[in-house]
Design a protein around this nucleic acid. Structure first.
Length: 214
DNA sequence: GAGACGATTTTCT
DNA sequence: GAAAATCGTCTCG
C-alpha cells in the first residue's frame, strides 16, 4: 500500500557531527527517513533515504578491514564525510563515514525516494521505466544524483552534498507510515554474510530488494 | 517474478 | 591477474 507522506524540508535540519560518530548500525538505521540533497550545476537533486547498510572496520565485508589504502583513506578520517568508490567497471557507490576518527566505518546508501529534481533524474537515468526505479539501488542512486569521484571526501554537513535529518515526530510518522524498519543481511557481498547490517523502510516502493528477515 | 549471466575498469595482491 | 558493497537483459514459467 502506498503511503502518501508529504516530505517537506521544513521538517528537516542538518544534524550535529555527533549524529555520525555513533555506532555504525545505529547511524545506518537512523538515516532511514533522512534527506540526501545534492546541489549540482544543472539543479538540485534530492530525496529520502529508504535503504542503508552498515560496514564495520572489524568485519571482512568492510573495505577498511585490511587497513588503509589510497582508495579507502577517507574512511579513517572524520565522520560525516563521503566515501565514494567505483566498482564492477560501471558503478559508483556512496557511503558516509561514521564513528570516531580513525576507526574506518561507514554506511552505504542503497536507495532513495526521488523528491527534488525528478525531471533531471529521468534524463540521467534513461533506463528507468518508472520514477520508482530512478534510485532504487546503490549504483542507480549515484547515477540519479550525479555522485561520483568528484564527491569523494565531501563533508555532508557542509558542502554541496548534504544530509538532513527529520524532526523526531516527523521521523516517527515516516517510519510508522511505512510499516517500520526491516533488518536483513547485506546484499552483494560474499563474506560476513551472516551479519544483519542492512536496514530499510518495510513497505517503501523504492527499496532495491524486499527480502524477508533471515 | 525469479534466476542466470555478461559488461567493464579500478583497485589491490 | 582476480575480484568486485551492481545493473540491465535475457530466459523460463
Amino acid at each position: 500500500m502506498a503511503v502518501e507522506l508529504h516530505i517537506d524540508l521544513k521538517n528537516y535540519r542538518i544534524p550535529a557531527r555527533k549524529f555520525f560518530s555513533r555506532d555504525t548500525r545505529t547511524v545506518a538505521k537512523s538515516l532511514l527517513g533522512a534527506y540526501l540533497r545534492h546541489e549540482t550545476p544543472v539543479g538540485v537533486l534530492g530525496g529520502m533515504i529508504v535503504e542503508t547498510e552498515a560496514y564495520m572496520f572489524s568485519e571482512p565485508g568492510c573495505h577498511a578491514f585490511n587497513g588503509m589504502t589510497n582508495r579507502n583513506r577517507v574512511m579513517f578520517g572524520h565522520p560525516a564525510h563521503a566515501y565514494t568508490y567505483f566498482t564492477y567497471g560501471a558503478h559508483w557507490m556512496l557511503n558516509i563515514v561514521t564513528e570516531k576518527e580513525g576507526r574506518g566505518c561507514c554506511v552505504l546508501l542503497r536507495a532513495l525516494e526521488p523528491i527534488e529534481g525528478i525531471e533531471i533524474m529521468r534524463g540521467l537515468r534513461q533506463k528507468a521505466k518508472k520514477d520508482v526505479d530512478l534510485a532504487n539501488g546503490p549504483g542507480k542512486l549515484t547515477q540519479a544524483l550525479m555522485i561520483g569521484k568528484g564527491q569523494y571526501g565531501l563533508d555532508v554537513l557542509d558542502s554541496r552534498l548534504i544530509v538532513l535529518v527529520p524532526e523526531r515526530s516527523f521521523r516517527r510518522r515516516i517510519v510508522d507510515g511505512y510499516g517500520g524498519i526491516v533488518t536483513t543481511t547485506r546484499i552483494g557481498i560474499s563474506v560476513a554474510e551472516d551479519l544483519q547490517y542492512r536496514f530499510y523502510l518495510a513497505n517503501h516502493p523504492c527499496v532495491s530488494v524486499h527480502r524477508k528477515t533471515v
